[in-house]
Design a binder for these strands. Structure first.
Length: 203
DNA sequence: ATCAAGATTACCT
DNA sequence: GGTAATCTTGATA
């Protein structure tokens, strides 16, 4: 797919197969622009979820109030709350009715890193090592970006939360593994990450 | 109305 | 390496 560097990804990008979108989202730039505060990060780790064949997907059981947005058109934001503490954010993919989405598991901070530090720790960094604990997981990323239920259903082709294009990664730069933290459909190799990146959640 | 599980994280040994 | 914390959601009655 032909795309222009540093331009916002369009609806067409998102309304494709979930695995294709998941892999191509690596290296792209997640941007949040709210109340004049701009936060951004390079996407370095994702997971694909497909309710049609994947028991771990929230959409596997059919439509509920929580997963409704995942059954809509691609290019919308699916945010959910889990384990009593954490939000996780996803990019809905495919056509209406598919129930597929990509979980953003980790990013590498770009703009607004100082604000992310404040959002995560409420203080300054204690050491250099702590820097890599900023956004190295789905819950951490949402906390750093102040992403909550309030952002459920946002249109990613809009101006509040969106994703910028970037140069396509080479195949050898991308790693694949089983997904993390699930108990069903564990075998599916649907986690994708940028090899040797310091911000991925696990080796 | 009640209950069990969960796409996690931080902290412990 | 292991596990407690914490509460929304979805299922069952």
């Amino acid at each position: 797919m032909k795309l222009v560097p540093n331009k916002k990804l369009t609806r067409k990008f998102y309304t494709r197969d979930v695995l294709t979108v998941a892999i191509e989202l690596l290296g792209k730039i997640l941007v949040k622009n709210e109340d004049g505060i701009i936060l951004s990060g390079k996407i370095v780790e994702v997971e694909a979820y497909n309710g049609e064949i994947d028991e771990a997907a929230h959409t596997f059981v059919g439509k509920t109030k929580r997963n409704e947005i995942m059954f809509g058109e691609g290019g919308f934001f699916y945010v959910y709350f889990t384990y009593g503490n954490h939000f996780c954010c996803n990019v809905v993919t495919g056509d209406i009715g598919k129930g597929t989405a990509v979980l953003i598991r980790a990013v590498e901070p770009l703009a607004g890193e100082d604000i992310m530090i404040k959002n995560r720790f409420g203080r300054k960094l204690k050491n250099e090592k702590e820097k890599f604990n900023l956004t190295s997981g789905p819950g951490k990323t949402c906390q750093a970006f102040s992403i909550t239920k309030k952002h459920y259903g946002i249109d990613l082709t809009g101006d509040e939360i969106y994703i910028l294009d970037s140069k396509k990664l080479k195949e050898e730069e991308i790693g694949t593994s089983q997904r993390i933290g699930i108990k069903k459909s564990v075998h599916l190799p649907w986690r994708f990450f940028i090899k040797n990146n310091q911000y991925i959640s696990r080796k």
